[in-house]
Amino acid sequence: MDRPEDGGAASGGEHLSDEEAVLTALGEPAPARVADHLAACAACRDEVDRYARTATAARSTERVAPVPVPAGTWEAVARETGVRSHPQRPVPAPVPDAVLPPQPRPLPAARPARWLALAAALLVGAGAGALGVRAWDRGAVDPVAVPPPAPLVASAVLDPLDSDGTGIADVHEVDGHHQLVVRVSGVAPAADGVLEAWLLDADGGLIALGPLVGEEFTAVLPADVDLERFSTVDVSREPLDGDPGHSSDSVLRGQLSPRAESA
């Protein structure tokens, strides 16, 4: 493992080997010389921290895809750990009905295969630059049907009146009802008020729909609204003065045009 000199001479004058750094990151008991070295060597502490973060990420996955192990890796791990056999594929343990708090237990004399596999994967990641590909095994998932878009009944481009803004209005058929969506841009409400949407007819009749939230308004229109009559969409600045009537301060307005109802 190539580490830059950190200016603080470590005990013994040599950095930790990859195997020592990995096993320390996995929480294995370290000889006194390793602890003394880490106390004096920032480069090795950084290396151990990097291995520890990688080990934590690896444990958090449901399954880690197999990683090709270079020749000599298992032998190097065996020399450090004293284990003389290759690790076997771990067998998943059954999930208990109730999860009990973890109980402290002594470290076994022989390190289990899963620790060796994780140590080898960390060593391979240090030499090859990757641990492998995370594979999630979630079983077969039935495809979810995506509902078709709501048919467009009518639409309007909202032209500026007393503003420099723009807007659009769309009427969709949703579950047998008409839903109006108004979107505006570049229009600010009065300092002490809101922007409000309206439907107007040619004779001066109007229907108050409600205030915009930010730059958008969405509402289901009453079933008795005749869009052939109330075909003008109006956006106005309304002060918060308790008066439900139109302020006559319209900023955007457009005429709804019928659209063919299609998906």
Results as ranks from 00 to 15, higher is better:
residue 231 S to K: 09
residue 207 I to N: 07
residue 199 L to Q: 01
residue 210 G to I: 09
residue 229 R to M: 06
residue 196 E to P: 02
residue 202 A to D: 14
residue 237 R to K: 10
residue 196 E to W: 01
residue 223 A to L: 08
residue 223 A to H: 11
residue 231 S to N: 06
residue 190 A to K: 06
residue 198 W to M: 00
residue 232 T to C: 07
residue 185 S to W: 13
residue 201 D to R: 02
residue 207 I to E: 03
residue 194 V to P: 01
residue 184 V to F: 07
residue 196 E to N: 05
residue 218 T to K: 08
residue 234 D to W: 05
residue 188 A to H: 04
residue 222 P to L: 12
residue 198 W to A: 00
residue 187 V to F: 06
residue 237 R to Y: 02
residue 207 I to Y: 10
residue 238 E to H: 09
residue 210 G to K: 12
residue 185 S to D: 15
residue 228 E to C: 03
residue 230 F to T: 02
residue 191 A to G: 09
residue 184 V to Q: 08
residue 195 L to D: 00
residue 206 L to F: 11
residue 202 A to M: 08
residue 224 D to T: 10
residue 203 D to T: 13
residue 192 D to P: 05
residue 201 D to Q: 11
residue 238 E to D: 15
residue 206 L to I: 09
residue 226 D to Y: 04
residue 223 A to P: 01
residue 214 G to S: 08
residue 192 D to H: 13
residue 231 S to V: 00
residue 208 A to T: 08
residue 198 W to I: 04
residue 221 L to H: 07
residue 193 G to W: 09
residue 229 R to L: 10
residue 192 D to E: 14
residue 189 P to R: 11
residue 219 A to T: 12
residue 220 V to C: 11
residue 213 V to T: 15
residue 192 D to C: 05
residue 224 D to M: 04
residue 207 I to L: 14
residue 220 V to Q: 12
residue 222 P to S: 09
residue 188 A to M: 11
residue 198 W to L: 04
residue 231 S to Q: 09
residue 186 G to A: 12
residue 218 T to C: 07
residue 186 G to K: 14
residue 186 G to R: 12
residue 200 L to G: 07
residue 224 D to C: 07
residue 198 W to Q: 01
residue 189 P to E: 13
residue 229 R to E: 08
residue 213 V to H: 10
residue 232 T to K: 04
residue 213 V to K: 02
